[in-house]
Write a protein that binds this DNA or RNA. Structure first.
Length: 821
DNA sequence: GACTTACGCCTT
DNA sequence: TGGTAAGGCGTAAGTC
């Protein structure tokens, strides 16, 4: 304790914004255990300034935690809250109105309670913070709005809008069809109509397709164009769940009346609402080859005739609106409904609500927030309970990249009878086993000789008996939660309870997502509790474990065919004569051999699992393959799986990639089927035939479409800026994006753009955008040689394993045939 | 023109 | 303001 501590505390207490300074005892810090004082200030927003002034004379902890989160952290609240409260006002529709309240009287009561007026919500209530508490998670009966705008390509103004409102039942499910609302006419009337719909129906979730980058910026832009003042603007775009009167008063920047966009994350937010862009969610959940609403809808709802394409050309919207406004309105209504149908089909709301519940964050944080916010929510409350001081987020430059997982070389060719084993939750297990945490990491100067685990990197972590780390404690708890939900899931399935099945499945999945987020956040350079040695120690232990197993297996004479980070592929000693494709029932003897080989491999797999599993490092038998093939490149392989169920898997190859094209992926899939059936010769002949057909111009252009994400920035005037690329003119996807924009179609930074290669004879190659879903137009001319060459290069890499090179596939013959031997 | 290498970029 | 490993495509520039 410094000798002048009393003087310094007095000086601190004398600061203008400081109300009081209280000692809170000793806390763990990265510099050792130290006495800590809590400083109470007049307002949340004075904290950053005070913190910066104190820098140098004090170390500041818990000094960058957003005030609204403080309520959740201190009261240990989560997504689902129960409140002991006094109701000031409730809407009629709920059937428990308080009478017929005089609005002025209610407003003054609300103001007296700290509010600013009549909120557009179901219930307005008052309570003390101490009257809030966490309750068990339940499926919330949300109100959802989904909307779409049609705009003039020529002028940029809004032509019409449509919206649906869906109110989930008490148990969080859908039953009745959603309400439909249409808006047309004067642009100001459209804006005001949408705004009063929001305020009257009070949706919790607002969705639409690409609303983050198109509809919301458009609404804001048109609102600013018409608005004569703040209150006028609020009538047109005051979507936040606060009284319009707030437009005239000081607004809460974090919970605004007018939707705003965060400058860093590019996400929209408004008081009390959660914006979910269905485009982003569909992209993340489905990874579709193309990302238009029409393509995604076709993918999800192939049988829904009512959602079928309406014959509207989006690039000619002005003409369409003039000539057939009713069809355009119908088209707009369908595109308002689809985003909600997509979210519902993908169970997005249930999944996000579950993630929010497990991480104990508001729903909006699960939807639009980051992994570090979720981890913060759990780590900070545990640290506060464990007398650990909360350091600030690290704003300094990132250190050198750490070394990651180990990937074993793969021998080219077909491998028979392979057992795949992998470590269960490898990184979380390592963090638990070795008690890895910032609070347990020993300083290099520490001289103790026992009571720690030492990573292969030489970094040491205190044993949990001496000090349990925050992170291992949280992970142990999450693992237990997952087991609980998994067992409840099984019970719900057995009882045929669809609602509970969905609930527990969403919850166990959310726990899994959250557990897997820990390593990433703690291996990052900026997180508050990280250190560069933490991430590298985890991966070093992982490499050490998997390499040890590989060498032990090799020493036993078991051949390790492949391994990546937490998995090993082991070849079993099964006779060469046993077929790897399941023979038919008629072929009784061969079938018997095949079946006994599968049993043998399953026993082999379980045997390895038992021998190599240790406490906290469980090596599970994941799958059994009768055949495994790779052409010799890491992270690229295929397999014929028979355990736990029949399947054919393809990893890494072009068949899985959106920057490939259908003709190639189909051909490659066919070749893989042949290879796994011991028919590679037939496969090669088919490839040669295909290459010939393409060279003869017999391909359908729709099978030649290539898609790839394209970045860029939109300028205020709507034009696109691709200068983030060092040579944008040389990139085919930038060329496709530019041509798309040139004919009046929208472009969203990050969206996938699609094209067909027209001529690769010049450099850069010339491409034509593929806009079938947008305009109905097809590209008919393509570069025959280019596609023939790409087909033979990609397929040639695979057939090379059987002696056929890419150039031989292209030529259709070879100097000396392997088959002629 | 065929081939190689370095580099930028995207995707898994 | 989660991480790394790895493959492949296209451009550009250089060599033969």
């Amino acid at each position: 304790m410094p000798s002048d501590i009393d003087q310094r505390l007095a000086l601190l207490a004398g600061e203008e914004e400081v109300l009081e300074v209280n000692g809170v005892g000793e806390k763990w810090t990265d510099l050792g255990v130290k006495p800590v004082w809590r400083v109470h200030v007049t307002q949340p927003w004075v904290v950053p300034g005070l913190r910066d002034r104190l820098e140098g004379s004090w170390d500041c902890y818990s000094a960058d935690i957003v005030f609204t989160n403080r309520l959740f952290l201190d009261r240990d609240l989560g997504t689902h809250i129960t409140a002991d409260c006094e109701i000031l006002h409730a809407r009629d529709e709920l059937g428990w109105d308080l009478g017929d309240p005089d609005e002025v009287a209610v407003c003054s009561e609300i103001r007296a309670a700290g509010g600013t007026g009549l909120y557009p919500v179901d219930i307005i209530a008052r309570m003390e913070a101490s009257e809030l508490s966490a309750c068990d998670a339940f499926p919330t009966p949300f109100v959802i709005m989904s909307f779409d705008l049609e705009t003039s390509v020529a002028e940029g103004h809004i032509l019409c809008a449509a919206a649906i409102i869906d109110r989930l039942d008490e148990d969080g499910s859908r039953s009745s069809p959603p309400e439909e609302h249409m808006f047309e006419g004067d642009e100001r009337a459209i804006l005001e109509g949408l705004t009063s719909l929001v305020r009257n129906t009070d949706p919790d979730l607002i969705t639409g397709y690409n609303i983050d980058n198109f509809d919301l910026p458009k609404l804001l832009d048109r609102c600013e164009f018409h608005a004569t003042g703040k209150e006028d603007a609020a009538e047109m775009f005051g979507w936040g769940r606060v009284p319009i009167s707030e437009a005239m008063e000081k607004q809460d920047q974090r919970a605004p009346l007018m939707p705003r966009r965060d400058s860093n994350s590019r996400k929209w937010f408004a008081a009390g609402r959660c914006f979910i862009d269905a485009w982003w969610q569909a992209r993340m959940a489905l990874r579709p080859e193309r990302e238009t609403l029409a393509f995604v809808s076709e993918l999800l709802f192939p049988d829904r005739e009512d959602l079928r394409k309406l014959d509207i050309d989006a690039s000619q919207m002005d003409r369409e609106w003039e000539q057939r406004p009713e069809e355009v309105m119908q088209y707009c209504m369908r595109d308002a409904l689809l985003p909600w149908e997509i979210l519902d089909e993908l169970r997005i709301v249930q999944r996000k609500e579950a993630l929010a519940a497990v991480a104990k964050v508001p729903l909006d944080s699960a939807v639009n927030g980051t992994t570090s916010q979720w981890i913060d929510s759990l780590v900070i409350r545990l640290a506060d309970r464990s007398a650990v001081a909360i350091p600030r987020t690290n704003r300094y430059q990132r250190s050198e990249q750490i070394t990651g997982g180990y990937v074993h070389d793969v021998e080219a060719g077909l491998h028979r009878w392979v057992a795949v084993l992998d470590f269960k939750s490898m990184y979380p297990s390592i963090m638990i086993n070795h008690n890895i945490c910032r609070t347990t990491m020993l300083d290099a100067a520490d001289r103790r000789e026992s009571g720690f685990d030492e990573a292969p990197t030489g970094v040491r972590f205190l044993s949990s008996e001496i000090r349990e780390g925050l992170v291992p404690a949280l992970l142990v708890d999450l693992m237990a939660q997952r087991d609980q939900h998994k067992s409840a899931l099984n019970d719900a399935r057995a009882a045929d309870d669809e609602r509970l099945t969905l609930f527990h499945d969403s919850m166990q999945y959310a726990v899994k997502i959250l557990m897997n987020s820990f390593y990433g956040v703690f291996a990052s350079s900026f997180y508050r509790f990280t250190h560069k040695d933490i991430g590298s120690s985890i991966t070093a232990w992982a490499r050490h474990n998997i390499k040890r197993i590989i060498s032990e297996l090799d020493a036993e004479g078991n051949s390790v065919v492949y391994s990546d980070t937490d998995s090993v592929f082991v070849s079993a000693p099964i006779s060469e004569n046993v077929p790897t494709v399941r023979p038919s029932e008629e072929d009784g003897e061969a079938l018997q051999e095949y079946l006994s080989a599968t049993t043998e491999l399953i026993e082999f797999g379980h045997g390895l699992s038992e021998r190599y599993s240790e406490k906290g490092a469980e090596l599970e038998f994941e799958s059994g393959m009768s055949a495994f093939f790779s052409h010799g490149a890491k992270k690229r392989y295929i397999g014929r799986v028979f355990y736990p169920h029949q399947d054919m898997i393809v990893r890494g190859y072009e068949t899985r990639r959106t920057d490939s094209f259908k003709l190639l992926t189909d051909a490659m899939m066919q070749l893989f089927e042949r290879i796994l059936s011991n028919e590679h010769e037939e496969g090669v002949l088919e490839v040669i035939e295909l290459v010939k057909r393409v060279r003869a111009g017999q391909a359908d252009a729709a099978d030649l479409v290539i898609s790839r994400g394209c970045k860029g920035k939109l300028r205020k005037d709507g034009s696109a800026d691709f200068s983030i690329y060092s040579n944008p003119d040389g990139l085919p996807f930038v060329q496709a994006a530019r041509k798309r924009i040139a004919i009046g179609l929208s472009f969203t930074p990050g969206m996938k753009v699609s094209w067909v290669v027209r001529s690769a004879r010049q450099s850069p190659m010339r491409v034509e955008p593929w806009l079938l879903e947008e305009t109905g137009q097809r590209v008919e001319v393509y570069d025959l040689d280019f596609y023939a060459r790409r087909l033979s290069t990609a397929l040639g890499r695979v057939t090379e394993a059987f002696g056929w090179s890419a150039s031989e596939l292209l030529a259709g013959n070879r100097q000396m045939s392997l088959f002629s031997f």
